[in-house]
């Protein structure tokens, strides 16, 4: 596998406090990398840094071997898609919510209609197309949020705890659907979660993050079977 994104010696500060210190991390093409760790450990800061929405103090970030700084931030952000914990839907129809990223890219309306309709069907919400975004259940809204990201055909998908606000049955159904979409599209994905089951179900590799540092990386089986330290074992509940 080749790396889509490589990170070396990354330091990120927020409000004059260092929140991230990562020596080395790479995201391989086509993989689902889960970043797991307790709340407040800097996982979301890492995701925002990867989305170039948070400026690092220092660090060498490479996209497909090229320094990330050589890419125009907007061009870069148009190659990725971000899904946050809250769907944050616009006060517009479901269709328009899914179309927004395509409209930002100035695509012709025929193509927008075709792509949005395809993803409305793929995530199982065709019947909601005209419904206002504000009148959806939590699960429906998160489906819209996923469709809104996948419709962009992103080279890198960044997911920040997308299911943590949902009830258990809804979460399980969405997890299964997301897994099959990821298998089908082979989208390179970074998933932030504190839910170990979610990580085990979706990810091909897991990186454990404690206090702003990546402390172990491996397949879910490896990490869960052989935690590298007592702290990691404690977080994993072993």
């Amino acid at each position: 596998m080749t790396a889509l994104l490589e990170i070396r010696d990354l330091t990120v500060c927020r409000d004059n406090r260092q929140v991230l210190e990562i020596n080395a991390l790479s995201v391989e093409k086509g993989e689902v990398l889960a970043i797991i760790g307790p709340n407040g450990t800097g996982k979301s800061s890492l995701l925002l840094t990867l989305a170039r929405l948070l400026q690092p103090e220092k660090g060498d970030l490479r996209w497909d071997g090229m320094p990330l700084s050589a890419l125009n931030p907007l061009d870069y952000r148009r190659r990725i898609a971000l899904v946050l914990q809250e769907p944050l839907l616009l006060d517009a129809s479901v269709f328009e919510n899914i179309a927004i990223g395509l409209r930002y890219r100035g695509l012709p309306s025929d193509e927008i209609r075709e792509r949005v309709n395809k993803w409305l069907a793929r995530v199982g919400i065709e019947s909601l197309s005209k419904r206002p975004g504000a009148r959806l259940s939590g699960g429906e809204a998160q489906r819209v949020s996923l469709a809104r990201a996948f419709v962009l055909n992103p080279e890198l998908l960044l997911l920040d705890e997308p299911f943590s606000a949902l009830d258990a049955p809804t979460r399980l159904r969405l997890l299964d659907d997301l897994k099959s979409i990821l298998n089908e599209t082979n989208t390179t994905t970074v998933l932030i979660t504190h839910d170990l089951k979610e990580a085990a179900r979706l990810a091909s590799r897991v990186a454990v993050m404690l206090q702003g540092k990546i402390v172990q990386i491996g397949s879910p089986q490896e990490v869960f079977a052989n935690p590298a330290s007592a702290d990691i074992a404690a977080f994993l509940g072993l």
Partner: peptide
């Protein structure tokens, strides 16, 4: 919601596009 700005930028909005969406 202040996170809406991040979400819009994360979907590929330029700054003027983000502001127009927020006005809307």
């Amino acid at each position: 919601d202040p996170r809406l700005q991040l979400q819009l930028l994360g979907l590929g909005a330029s700054t003027p596009q983000m502001v127009l969406t927020l006005w809307r």
